[in-house]
Computed example of a mutant assay.
Amino acid sequence: MSATFELQGLRALVTGGTKGVGKAVVAHLCEAGANVLATARSRSDELSEERFIGADITTVEGCKAVVDAVLDRLGGVDIIVHVAGGSSAPAGGFRVLDDDEWNKALNLNLFPAVRIDRALLPSMVEQRSGVIIHVTSIQRQLPLPEATIAYAAAKAALSNYGKALSKEVSPKGVRVVRVSPGWVETEAAENLVARIAGQNGIDMDDARKVIMDSLGGIPLGRPCAPQEVAELIGFLVSARASAITGTEYVIDGGTVPTA
């Protein structure tokens, strides 16, 4: 189904909007007619300066800069999609995760959503309309202990926060929905596949299988594409999903073995 003009006139903010899933979400929302602002540390060549807010949202100051820009340029917001997230923690399990690594995980994967929501939600409640999407991860329920304990815990916290928020603001006209991707083959993921292939003297398909095996397998036989996640988010922020709030949609090719 074409999403052309489905979001015409709506104002949207996408965090982490210059790469991977965030970049795909920005493109999808723009195609659907929304007036989109994307935030990240640096602008991509495909994104015009008019659609970009440069900020480090792992900081209080960065979140405030984003909120101020949204209010100044858009006068408010109808859609917020929190895509920003990730992990740079070293491998080695719990022993190598000091307080600094835990703080990094929370400051990237939880607190930006909390801070930006807290600042922008009052106007959404006042207009009695709006949608917030929190992009979590299947690692909230399927953590990988070697390197992503802190990331997985932060995403679990984000999911719990999103559920609680939905109970508070859905009666006031604002929907809150969570999207939980599995392995998505972004540019960064493709680089990882190439690195595994080079290190092990195998081809790209076999390197992808190494990653899929580390996840316990993907029944679909492949990772998701960023555009597929963007399509799901585009539906959830549209009027077609007007009865959907408080739930979490898993898009992982069947990776998580339980419902």
Rank of each mutant, 00 (worst) to 15 (best):
L165E: 03
A34R: 05
G16L: 01
K19W: 09
V135H: 01
I132T: 08
G217E: 10
C224T: 14
I233T: 14
F235K: 02
V36S: 05
G246S: 11
I251F: 14
V193M: 13
G221L: 03
T15V: 11
A12E: 09
P219M: 10
V177K: 12
R175Y: 08
S2C: 01
R115M: 01
V26R: 06
D98L: 03
A189F: 06
P112N: 01
P171Q: 08
P90W: 03
P223H: 14
P226K: 07
E146K: 15
I79H: 03
S88Y: 09
V229G: 03
V66T: 00
V169L: 09
I116M: 00
A156L: 11
N160T: 14
R115S: 01
A24D: 05
G198S: 14
L106A: 10
S137N: 06
N191T: 13
K163C: 12
G92T: 01
S159T: 11
G92N: 05
L110Y: 00
D72W: 04
I218M: 07
L108Q: 00
H82T: 00
A241I: 12
G16V: 00
A27F: 13
A152R: 08
V177S: 11
V229K: 02
I211D: 13
I251G: 15
A32W: 07
H28R: 13
V169D: 08
I251H: 15
K155L: 09
L106C: 10
E228A: 07
G93M: 02
V26P: 03
V177R: 11
P143W: 05
S88D: 15
R41N: 03
K172W: 08
F52Q: 05
G216I: 05
A113C: 02
G76L: 01
H134T: 11
A207Q: 02
G201Q: 06
V96H: 00
G246Y: 08
A189E: 08
P145E: 10
G17D: 02
I244R: 04
I251L: 13
L110M: 01
R208A: 11
D100C: 06
K23P: 13
R222W: 05
V229N: 02
A154Q: 10
R11M: 04
P145H: 02
A38F: 13
P171N: 06
L158R: 02
